[in-house]
Amino acid sequence: MDVVIEGDASPGGWPVPDCRCASCRSVRAAPHAPLRVLVDGTPLDELAARRLPGGFAVTAPDGGDLLCADPGGLPEPEDGIVYEAVLLDLLADPSHLGALRASGAVGPRTSVHAVHLDHRIRDESELTRRLAFWTSPPTPPHRTLLLGGSRSGKSAEAELRLAAHPHVTYVATGPTAEADPDWARRVGAHKVRRPPGWATLETTDLDAVLRNAEGPLLIDGLGTWLAAAMDETGAWESPDAVLPRLDSLTASWRAASAVVVAVSDEVGLSLVPDNRAGRLFRDFLGDVNQRLAAESEDVALVVAGRVVAL
């Protein structure tokens, strides 16, 4: 199947007429036309469409099948069909691509295209960056460490990077909801934005998780893991007691065979803590971050939702 994308924007185009947002201003020199696609030389809208919830499917002149989303739609695949190409509104929900992969409708040879583009994305460079994660995900083993301060957007960035994978295990290392109601509210907010097909594992045994992983992992986060490790080893009073845990985690991270994205706090940019426990935690977490960064294929700092590769 030969798919030629002559226009990939939403019906209003990108930039949206008369819109003054930063996204639309960024593409005025090279605008994106509304969706126009040729399939084996035939305009997509001239092929007989099979309407589906959230979109439609067509059979190309060469006999292959193509799935296309409506603007904002999440098209449901047909039973038993592996599509040769899919045109998806990935800005609406990139995890829909993960669901199609999990169902078998999108396979390794399926050509994936993002369509209905508009000012939901910041600019062309951010679109390119995200599409690299969604349409050409890294092959394992691949380790990513995302650093950032409080409310920096680091967790959302981690979720974004794995959104289009078919199966992801979210590893929550924090306290149980029963122990901390405020923490429960934070955990609840994270769960709402996670794809529904993701599994959740609440544990601080990251060595076992990394050794036994059979699919992508999102670990959130290393700060709460370290606090638990320091509690369990008595490191608040005897700091050296936690060092074997740090050594073991580093070895497990180095030996990981999965795609792993871990979130950690960047604690080196704030004031020096005015108490011993705070200084111990800061120093050990800085050590953890350096150890894992040295063993990672990808490291980035997230600031105000913007990502800086390190």
Rank of each mutant, 00 (worst) to 15 (best):
A241N: 14
M1R: 13
A49N: 04
E295Y: 12
V288Q: 04
A229C: 07
L131R: 13
E126W: 12
G153P: 05
T59E: 10
D18Q: 14
P43M: 06
T176Q: 13
D180V: 12
L38D: 04
A163E: 01
A304C: 10
A49W: 04
V259S: 00
D231W: 15
L292T: 08
S23E: 01
P244K: 07
S136A: 15
L147W: 13
L218V: 07
A132H: 13
E232I: 07
E46P: 08
T59W: 02
A163R: 00
S238V: 11
Y83W: 15
A85Y: 01
W134M: 15
L146T: 00
V171L: 11
V86L: 02
L88F: 05
Y170I: 07
W183P: 12
A304G: 07
P61M: 01
V263A: 05
E178K: 13
V168T: 01
E297F: 11
H167I: 03
S125E: 13
A227L: 06
L271E: 14
T250P: 00
P140W: 01
L38H: 09
V261G: 08
V4T: 15
A251M: 02
D45G: 04
A241K: 11
A199H: 08
G268H: 09
T200N: 14
A258M: 06
A293I: 06
L127D: 01
P239W: 14
R109N: 12
R186T: 05
P31D: 13
A156P: 03
A228I: 08
L38Y: 02
T144D: 11
A235T: 02
G148P: 09
A277Q: 15
R50S: 06
R276C: 03
G234K: 04
N212G: 03
D62C: 09
G63F: 11
L222N: 02
A262C: 05
S23I: 02
A227M: 08
L243M: 08
P77M: 01
S103W: 02
